[in-house]
Each structure stands twice: as structure tokens, then as C-alpha cells.
């Protein structure tokens, strides 16, 4: 049998496929959260009064601050891609550091927000939660589940960006091989996108 030798261009990479693979993954993320949003809408339509009452117990100020944090961090990631494309590695890394600080700030806010709720016994299984009307229980269950899942995504996004920063310092991600940075950016923007919907649905609709 003769060996079939495939032509090789010398560098085995395909930025277009990288990007498309990332988008396909993001679509599964959209449908994951999309399913949860459908659950939210169904329960909201059945328990509209209880959801209304429960939503007043969330802190709009912290929610707004976290929204601004995420929007700004999305901008710094987008700008870091621009910086690396223009060949400015240092600025790109600084912008990613700023993003990491914003990610941490978001999680610290989340910690205090959840902490205040847990101090009041509002967490599935706690005393105050057990006494609530069933509609309010549903609201808080969904609140903790959806914002919790979102916070997990923030942590994963932060780790992803940290890995990319390390590879940028090692010269493995450069303006010619930018795919990994772009993909971490896409992931971070998706996390921002999900929050854009979570914020009004849980905090603002009164």
C-alpha cells in the first residue's frame, strides 16, 4: 500500500475554524441560559405578584454597579484585542489586567450581595426561605441558580483570560496568532450578554 502524503503548508492552524468552533460553543451557552429564561418566564407568568414582591428585596444599586463593571470590562477586553492587532503587547496586557480586576470586583459585589441574603436566611433550605410563599421561593431559587451559574462563568472567563495572558507573555499568542485572545474575548462578551438580560429581569421589573 502506498502512503498518501497530504500537502502541508508548514503551519497547522486555521483561525477561521478556531473562531467558528468558539461561536458554536457560544450557541450552546445561549441555549443553556435560554432554557433557564423560559423557566423564569413561565414561573413569572404563573406567580406574577409573588415575583413582583420578591424582586423588591434585591439591591438595585449593587446590580447597577455590577452591570457597569461588566460593560466596562467588556470594553477593555475588546480594546486589548485592538491593541494586540496593532502590535502593542504591553497595552494589551494592561487592558487584560484591568479586565481581571473588574472580574474580581464583580465577584466581590456578588459575595456581599449573596451574603446579605444569606444573613437574612434567604437561601434554599434556610429558615426565612422556608416560610416564604411558594412563588417567592421560586423567584429566589431561580435568582440564586441563574446568577450563581453566571458567576461560575465569570470565574471560568477570568481563568481563560489569565491563561491567554500567560501565553501572550511567552510569545505564543501574538498579533499573527491572535485566535486564543479573540476567543477568550468572545467568551467574556457572552458572559456580559447574559448579565444584560439577567439584570433587568431580576432587579428592575417592578
Amino acid at each position: 500500500m502506498t502512503h498518501l502524503v497530504l500537502p502541508n503548508s508548514g503551519h497547522n492552524r486555521d483561525p477561521e475554524a478556531n473562531k467558528m468552533g468558539m461561536w458554536l460553543f457560544l450557541f450552546t451557552e445561549i441555549l443553556l441560559f435560554g432554557g433557564l429564561f423560559i423557566v423564569y418566564f413561565v414561573y413569572r407568568s404563573i406567580n406574577s405578584d409573588a415575583f413582583l414582591h420578591a424582586s423588591y428585596q434585591l439591591n438595585v444599586t449593587i446590580g447597577t454597579i455590577n452591570t457597569i463593571i461588566l460593560i466596562t470590562s467588556s470594553m477593555t477586553v475588546a480594546m486589548s484585542i485592538t491593541a494586540l492587532q496593532k502590535g502593542n503587547l504591553k497595552l494589551s496586557l494592561i487592558l487584560l489586567w484591568i479586565t481581571q480586576i473588574f472580574a474580581l470586583a464583580f465577584l466581590v459585589n456578588k459575595y456581599f450581595e449573596w451574603g446579605a441574603k444569606i444573613d437574612h436566611g434567604i437561601f434554599p433550605g434556610m429558615a426565612h426561605y422556608a416560610e416564604m410563599a411558594s412563588g417567592e421561593k421560586l423567584y429566589f431559587f431561580l435568582y440564586f441558580f441563574m446568577t450563581g451559574l453566571h458567576a461560575v462563568h465569570i470565574i471560568i472567563g477570568g481563568i481563560f483570560i489569565a491563561v491567554v495572558m500567560k501565553k501572550m507573555k511567552e510569545g505564543k499568542v501574538t498579533s499573527e496568532r491572535i485566535s486564543l485572545l479573540e476567543n477568550s474575548g468572545l467568551y467574556w462578551h457572552l458572559v456580559d450578554l447574559i448579565w444584560i438580560y439577567l439584570f433587568p429581569l431580576f432587579y428592575l421589573i417592578h
Binding site: S74, M75, V77, A78, G185, L186, H189, D192, L193, I196, Y197, F199, P200
Partner: peptide, 14 residues
Amino acid sequence: IATTKAILVAYWYM
């Protein structure tokens, strides 16, 4: 409003 924001993020940031 959320969808308007989502389109902004998807079209420019992404």
C-alpha cells in the same frame, strides 16, 4: 432595551 444592548455587544465588541 436589553436586546438593543445585546445587539451592540454582539456587533461591535464581538
